[in-house]
């Protein structure tokens, strides 16, 4: 086997980023002239396997075991390890999701094979991919080269590939694999996932979002932003450090651990633009960024930007808009 794409699911639906991983697998397969296979792990995933079989791939592999009904890092890592050992793929591709970050490094440790994580693209050099990722919170890019033998474990960042570009096929065959798991190897016991607070701010449908970051300095200064939001008819959002500092409640947070938004205007105040934040607002039509650091990565994706002190600019902007 050549390229193995592993799908993530919650027993009902396939994770959006898994389809992006399939697109990545098909792209790499085309560039290297390799075939692509899909793997689904779980306890009863035949419906999901049928959905996967509609894509342009060689085969869908199904690894079912009762111990895989709920996700555990050990169960998933041991299962994927067995599949890699028996099927011997050259590349194992997944989305860079929280679940993958939780268990895939274990596979790297067990097999002693490299894990190229969180890539945004790749390029081919001498028939080998060089993986391209962001480092220093998006301030720099890095080209990462494999040094050991295959298989290579590879994850791609959200939106690095488009799920819409997945090619459909004539119907792939589905093959069941036999997996050996025992209770003893699963060292953790997972309880049911839950949501902490009901989200009473629906940022996902907001037209105008003013988002505030660490640069606001202290909690009292949030009021300056609230006044601007009021005159603009905007909802207030924020980056993670603002929630961590207790300046705004968690449901205002945009980013990988918060909400995903796509407003007409995303007005970012004092947010550097770490990738964990940007993945939550990539869909905005217009982006205005104010930051004191001219090298803030957020400027890279801004339509309009200004380097300056938000504490000086925001109150004057509020007054200007009020005055018409």
């Amino acid at each position: 086997m050549e390229i193995l794409v592993v799908l993530e699911h919650n027993n009902q639906t396939i994770h959006r980023m898994s389809w992006e991983a399939v697109a990545a697998g098909q792209s790499l397969g085309k560039d290297l002239n390799l075939s692509t296979t899909i793997l689904i792990m779980g306890s009863d995933v035949s419906t999901l396997a049928k959905e996967a079989a509609t894509k342009d791939i060689t085969e869908v592999l199904v690894a079912e075991h009762p111990l895989l009904e709920t996700y555990t890092a050990d169960g998933y890592a041991r299962t994927l390890t067995q599949v890699i050992e028996s099927e011997q793929p050259a590349y194992v591709i997944m989305g860079h999701t929280y679940m993958v970050r939780d268990f895939l490094p274990k596979v790297c440790a067990i097999l002693k094979q490299p894990l190229f994580g969180d890539n945004i693209s790749y390029r081919i050099e001498n028939s080998t991919p060089i993986f391209i990722k962001q480092i220093f919170q998006g301030k720099l890019m890095a080209e990462v080269s494999p040094q050991g033998n295959q298989p290579y474990l590879v994850t791609f960042q959200s939106a690095a590939f488009q799920s819409e570009s997945v090619h459909r096929g004539a119907g792939a065959t589905i093959r069941n694999l036999s997996i050996t798991l025992s209770d003893e190897i699963i060292k953790t016991r997972s309880e049911d996932p839950f949501q902490e607070t009901t989200i009473d701010v629906d940022l996902s449908s907001a037209d105008i979002i003013i988002s505030v970051g660490r640069g606001i300095g202290k909690k009292e200064n949030i009021n300056l932003v609230k006044e601007l939001a009021e005159v603009m008819g905007a909802q207030i959002a924020c980056s993670r450090p603002v929630v961590d500092a207790g300046w705004l409640p968690p449901y205002h947070q945009v980013g990988s651990s918060g909400q995903t938004v796509s407003p007409k205007l995303y007005f970012a105040l004092g947010i550097s633009g770490a990738i964990q934040h940007l993945v939550g607002m990539k869909g905005a039509n217009n982006v205005i960024v104010i930051n004191k650091d001219p090298n803030a990565p957020f400027f890279e994706i801004a339509d309009y930007g200004t380097v300056g002190n938000i504490l000086e600019i925001v109150p004057k902007l509020t007054e200007a808009i009020k005055g018409g």
């Binding site: 962001q134 080269s145 339509d303």
Partner: peptide, 27 residues
């Protein structure tokens, strides 16, 4: 098992219009 061969500054994917001037001009 892997090494960083090369680092570089991100290429801009969007054309950003930078607003400059005094605070009043920026506003």
């Amino acid at each position: 098992l892997q090494s960083i061969e090369h680092v570089y500054l991100p290429q801009k994917t969007k054309r950003t219009e930078m607003i400059t001037g005094s605070i009043d001009q920026v506003v």
